[in-house]
Design a protein around this nucleic acid. Sequence first.
DNA 1: TCCATTCAGGACGAATTTTGTCCAAAAGTA
DNA 2: TACTTTTGGACAAAATTCGTCCTGAATGGA
Lengths: 113, 113
Amino acid sequence: MESVKIHKNFGEHLRTLRETAGLTLREVASTINVDSSLLAKVERNQRPPTRQLIKSLASFFNTNERELLIEFLSDQIAYKILDEEGDLDILKVAEEKVSYLKTLHNGNDNDKK
Amino acid sequence: MESVKIHKNFGEHLRTLRETAGLTLREVASTINVDSSLLAKVERNQRPPTRQLIKSLASFFNTNERELLIEFLSDQIAYKILDEEGDLDILKVAEEKVSYLKTLHNGNDNDKK
DNA sequence: TCCATTCAGGACGAATTTTGTCCAAAAGTA
DNA sequence: TACTTTTGGACAAAATTCGTCCTGAATGGA
């Protein structure tokens, strides 16, 4: 039974983008004005991308910035949970909190208390 | 129609613990050896608690450390998502990643590729 | 009112972390 | 071999974190 790798993390995703485009690290790095060593680390998930880097990359690869951002944030969250040895309950609670806080924001002026 | 505040965040939770115990910030702070100003900020969610602080607080209030940790981590995640203007998709993706990564960890030696 | 106590919150600095760069070694290619 | 790409350690500047100190506002009792 072969298991398929469903989920790419940010770095892998990025590497795929680059390789699909047939470009080297240096090429990409230089046109978006970062050190190629940094980009290499990002591709190997040894360094997190900054917001600005995500923007630059999305624009360079002509891809959806939001999608890249989701890739990155979900990585961050997933790895945080693993390393805190937390479980999926945390996400459930977080989800409820997000939903709740969003309804508050939406002009729905309920008591904050 | 009155809406009820279902979700406490970490600070509120902590404050409730303290007030239920009928203690002042100073009292709690001094016995767990932190500045009361710091504790006040944590209760108002102006400062995140450190891991050590969570431990101390759980022990002081004789409550479940893991529960406090969940409260804190879910806060962090929820606020991060709000602040990045992300949506619940991020959590879905994160959840899948956590599940996936956990199966990898569990001796289930699938190809990493 | 005066005094004591609690809480809020700004400011500060030491310690830590982050971020990008440089450089050299390793790996890959012809 | 010679050349290019990728990897990864070391470093310093910049940014952030973390606890403390200090002042001021609010509360409450005598």
